[in-house]
């Protein structure tokens, strides 16, 4: 896959991360277009199933973005989210996907720059890792995926 452009899903909580994304917008901070945001009220709402489904459909990376520790508008949804992300990471490893493709990040509503920075770093990281094997399998058919799996 030459010129690999990863597709990254960012589940963003409404109160902090999504607001930070808006802030990045109003400050005109640029970040890679690879990151696509799905808004949720709280990072604790992000279902393990939805993370896994994103990978199953071909996501190269996923991150859950919540409020800073202690700042969750629903007490501790972000802490739950972090634990959930940790367990889904292990599950991904079991399946044979790199756990690093999934991240939990936190930021406050005012941190537009951090949103842009996280989006950039995540994109860079995934770009270096290359496409997810699932993405490859879905895109290139079985034979290519087999080749990739053997290497």
């Amino acid at each position: 896959m030459e010129n690999f452009e990863p597709v990254i899903v960012a589940f963003c909580c409404h109160y902090c991360a999504y607001t930070a994304a808006d802030m990045a917008g109003s400050q005109r901070l640029t970040y890679p277009a690879n990151v696509k945001i799905i808004r949720v009220p709280c990072s604790g709402k992000v279902d393990a199933l939805h993370i896994v489904k994103a990978f199953e459909k071909g996501a190269d990376g996923v991150y859950v973005a919540g409020c800073l520790e202690g700042d969750c508008h629903f007490k501790n949804g972000n802490v739950r989210a972090a634990r959930r992300v940790e367990s889904v990471r292990k599950y991904l490893e079991e399946i044979g996907l790199e756990g690093e493709r999934l991240e939990m990040v936190t930021m406050s509503a005012g941190m537009g720059y951090r949103f842009a920075q996280v989006a950039t770093e995540m994109t860079e990281k995934i770009r270096k890792m290359g496409p997810s094997p699932i993405h490859l399998a879905l895109a290139g058919g079985a034979s290519e995926a087999r080749k990739a799996a053997n290497i």
């Binding site: 696509k36 949720v40 939805h50 489904k53 994103a54 459909k57 879905l138």
Partner: peptide
């Protein structure tokens, strides 16, 4: 924020990619 709406977003996002 029903599950099927979130899954629909994922579905639509990856339809193009795949």
């Amino acid at each position: 924020f029903e599950d099927d709406r979130i899954l629909a977003k994922l579905e639509e996002l990856f339809e193009r990619t795949n």
